[in-house]
Design a protein around this nucleic acid. Structure first.
Lengths: 208, 208
DNA sequence: GACGGTTGTCGAACAGTGTTCGACAAGAAC
DNA sequence: GTTCTTGTCGAACACTGTTCGACAACCGTC
């Protein structure tokens, strides 16, 4: 017997993947798919918004696990030397880029979630998720081994920049294609990752 | 006598600036502020969504004008030499960064607009605005003078990356503060711009 | 076994949303 | 004077997320 709360999360996740716009995600449809009543959402999660947050949290954990697993694999391969900068950047931005281009992935849960976070009236709800960046600290340590002239904060800033570039390709694909005159194939994740590596690596070079 | 359509745009703009969440932007409030009936929105613009698009378009034009004016000023100052890379990057990302930190600016119109664009069911409505990048072409030309080893498309890609980094600071301020351990004052636009310049300029260096 | 109390489920009702539609008015064109 | 267009308004519609009271199922305690 699956608990209703779990069934709601699973229905919400599935619906978020199918739907092309958040307007199509309604409490009644979630409840129907979960085989329960709409009021069950409020009862178990407080609101529909918090149900979506709980759903996204699960997916985020999977994404971050994939990042760390890629990073660890790179560390193992290069051991005892530190892994190449390009491999670390690839581990950081690779999973999101691949997910965003894979229709079978759960990436749409995340993209819908971030757009919901921006629209919400109660920003506090999102604080715990936004501040959860332990996985980034792991990256920070390895990056510093490659760029000892940068402080931990400076490395953190560059990680943030890399993620900003990643968002630009996963969110504004159309705009990117216009700006690059379609010379980059933004439907090929490996090419996109290579291009990101190309601009991010120089950020870690020693100052001239 | 101001036409009703104009009054609606102005009311929408004002409301978008005051409001902290898009949920607070309702047809009835817009109509009330404009001194007309809610149905006037559908009559003049087709839908509330299209009214917001028309409102955002006006603001975008002002932002892009400011960018080009900064770029031209830099060109004049440096003439006949090309302006410094840092000044061009500043002209590109500076206006959005300053607006986003100035409560008196109309930046909230734009941030609400982009979050609405992501949620919409009808992406086609936004295509004209997203594809409008003539102002970026002007930047592209000047960047190339500084980095002749890059193709126009490669320069466009770097412009896109710079804008992605910009979005990261204007949208995810909280996350940035955590990642950089509050060593960067993200409420000071000039410091933020300097930090962006610091990571973007190396992207244009010649390959090693 | 009988009894409260907790926990969960359901459906009706509520206040709110954007949009549609028919009625009506003002003005221009003929 | 009539007809057509343009614009405005308010009532109505279908929909939204959430609340609330009724009811059922379970649990521990007497």
């Amino acid at each position: 017997m699956i608990p209703t709360a779990t069934k709601l999360i699973e229905a919400c996740e599935k619906l978020l993947c199918e739907v092309s716009s958040l307007e199509e995600l309604t409490a009644r449809r979630i409840a129907e798919l979960a085989g329960t009543a709409p009021s069950a959402i409020s009862y178990h999660f407080g609101s529909q918004e918090q149900l979506v947050i709980a759903t996204a949290e699960r997916v985020y954990k999977q994404l971050n696990a994939e990042r760390l697993s890629l990073l660890n694999a790179a560390v193992q391969r290069a051991h005892p030397a530190p892994p190449a900068l390009s491999e670390m950047v690839g581990a950081l931005v690779g999973p999101s880029v691949r997910w965003s281009l894979d229709p079978a992935s759960k990436y749409k849960v995340l993209s819908h979630f971030t757009s919901m976070a921006q629209r919400s009236r109660d920003q506090e709800l999102y604080r715990p998720l936004v501040e959860g960046i332990e996985h980034h600290r792991v990256f920070s340590a390895h990056f510093r081994a490659h760029a000892p002239w940068l402080s931990e904060a400076e490395v953190g800033w560059r990680i943030s920049c890399a993620l900003g570039i990643r968002s630009q390709v996963t969110r504004n694909r159309l705009r990117n294609e216009v700006l690059t005159q379609s010379t980059i194939d933004f439907s090929d994740p490996e090419e996109v990752i290579a291009r990101i590596v190309e601009v991010v690596v120089p950020m870690f070079r020693a100052p001239a």
